[in-house]
Design a protein around this nucleic acid. Structure first.
Lengths: 152, 152
DNA sequence: CAAATTACATAGATAACCTATGCATATCAA
DNA sequence: TTGATATGCATAGGTTATCTATGTAATTTG
């Protein structure tokens, strides 16, 4: 079954397996969803709740809940958006950046035994894998610019 | 920051993102963990509960719970292991195979817009990505005393 | 200004996990 | 054989992660 139809299936299966394995074996105390949100905040900088939900492909209430936990931990700060009193601008606190660094170290550590000792060719393959995953997500999540599209 | 240390981080992040996005957008009614277990049963054939837990990198009680749901749906069958009355041998029923096929179709469909129209070179890159994910998981999950290690 | 919209919060439900523990069967030592 | 221990699975109870539906307050609009 090397036909293109099974390729998507295999990719999703393999990605999910690695992901699952890593989250089970990486030892950090920050729950997974909170770690993800910390990383997203670091990437985006000060953001609205709804912007975070969109970027995370999750619902706004999910983000609200996670943000409350991050706030309780002192990892994020909120400011009222000067342009809109309904909206918050959420950003990482210094403690939040520290927590994110811890998470990153733990995630690096969990894969390190498998990555250490890879030669340049093998590392290049890993880089290809990362790029493929990112490109496919971008292509899948973006509105299709192909002629397959019908409304706009 | 393209040093090897960040590579693991990036890979895990990208894999988790694609995974998450797909599970949010694939429209099948089978819950994610049950779908995973169906696929695993299909791969392994008749298996003990504990073997499934090990292969899935999850706890035995998690598998027990999921199996009860699969049984309630009529998707798996159990037989007493003839060698050990404590153990069950769990296998997919015909209905379970059908359900798994539905899941696979839905998963293929969710990535199809991104995969359709890729040329042979791009498809080869996707194949590399799958192989890299599988190889890293295998390397990471194996006991580290394996001879693939350079030092001891 | 009233109505509609928007941004976020809350409520309530389900799924997916885990650890701790219980119970029955197997195995082993003496 | 029998008591101790190990093993295979089930149950209990708790946490995290999500969702949809809905509420509340601020903003925009006709």
């Amino acid at each position: 079954m090397t036909e293109p139809t099974s390729l998507g299936n295999e990719l999703l299966r393999s990605a999910a397996r690695l992901s699952r394995w890593a989250s089970r074996h990486a030892s950090f105390d920050v729950p997974f969803a909170q770690a993800r949100l910390l990383a997203l905040l670091d990437e985006l900088g000060p953001s609205r709740v709804s912007a975070l939900a969109a970027a995370d492909h999750s619902s706004q209430p999910s983000i609200t809940t996670q943000l409350h936990r991050l706030e309780a931990a002192g990892w994020v700060e909120r400011a009222v958006d000067p342009d809109d009193a309904r909206a918050s601008l959420v950003s990482l606190s210094p403690a939040g950046k520290d927590a994110l660094e811890d998470v990153r170290r733990a995630r690096v550590a969990v894969l390190a035994p498998a990555l250490d000792g890879l030669d340049a060719t093998a590392l290049a393959r890993v880089r290809v894998a990362i790029d493929v995953l990112d490109e496919l997500l971008a292509a899948a999540a973006e509105p299709p610019s192909h002629p397959t599209r019908k409304d706009g």
